[in-house]
Design a protein around this nucleic acid. Structure first.
Lengths: 149, 149
DNA sequence: ATTGCTGCAAACGATTTGCATGAGG
DNA sequence: CCTCATGCAAATCGTTTGCAGCAAT
């Protein structure tokens, strides 16, 4: 956590931006949360630590976090951005339930291998990828089959 | 193509909706196009076949096409929806250049295998997935290294 | 002092919806 | 006829930006 904050401050310094109370509050809130958050949710979550903080700061800080690699955008539904932090987190992916919106994480080294392999083949320099599986989770499957019966 | 239109009409019938001139025009235009299209682009493309068609019909028809499995949403940049048709198309993925926005297609049977495997493991019933690789294409890499030199 | 930061509200772009009119069964 | 579809314009949603005042160097 210390280290991540350090990374963030380095990034600010590089861009000649200023470390401020609000930015630190937002970053701390963000790093503390294990799940993915929409800007909206993060903003809500911060009402406790500092009720005065506005959307603007949240959006701008998430952008900074993404730029320095501490946050990753994972778009589950198009039109709503979601972010998750990259600090102390294994490289993983999500399987998302299209009914209830819940998600489970899974790890698959093969996907990283594929990224490199395909990149080489088409002469791209790959920097990142998205991989998400959509479907019905067990609970929702049960519920929907019950509805039919 | 015939078959795809048939699928679409079946879907309309199921929902007690009406097959109309405009819907058919939009579907035809969409199926004829091999690349992914944003609703905006599809709307433009139809100015030729029927200049009177509005955004609304395009958006609504794309939604219907997605619902009956003929269209797939592939979100390259968040905030702009893009659709590609699933008719007579191998299951493929995209590698997208973050600089110029260009994309190449690639096919990887492993990804489909992974979908099933992970689904089984976590007791999901997977229906689809997204997999995209982002990076720099050869041209853009050359250009950006030249700029440094 | 200077430069950048903030929250607010207005602006924005993509998508959706309400409504009066027009087309399909 | 009755229902649904259409195009338009207005509404909406998430996100971005301009601005006047505040805070950090």
């Amino acid at each position: 956590m210390r280290a991540a904050q350090e990374t963030f401050h380095q990034h600010l310094k590089r861009l000649r931006l200023k470390p401020t109370e609000q930015r630190d509050t937002i970053v701390r809130s963000f790093l503390e949360t294990r799940e993915q958050l929409s800007p909206e949710e993060l903003h809500q979550r911060m009402k406790q630590s500092d009720p005065g903080i506005g959307f603007t700061a949240v959006y701008r800080t998430l952008k900074l976090l993404t730029a320095c690699g501490l946050a990753l955008e994972v778009a589950f539904r198009s039109g709503i951005a979601r972010y998750e932090h990259r600090y102390n987190r294994r490289n993983h992916h999500h399987m998302v339930c299209t009914q209830c919106g819940g998600a489970v994480e899974f790890v698959s080294p093969e996907v990283d291998r594929l990224e490199k392999e395909i990149g080489r083949k088409y002469r791209y320099q790959p920097t990142r990828h998205t991989f998400q599986i959509y479907g019905l989770c067990e609970d929702c499957r049960r519920k929907s089959s019950r509805r039919v019966a």
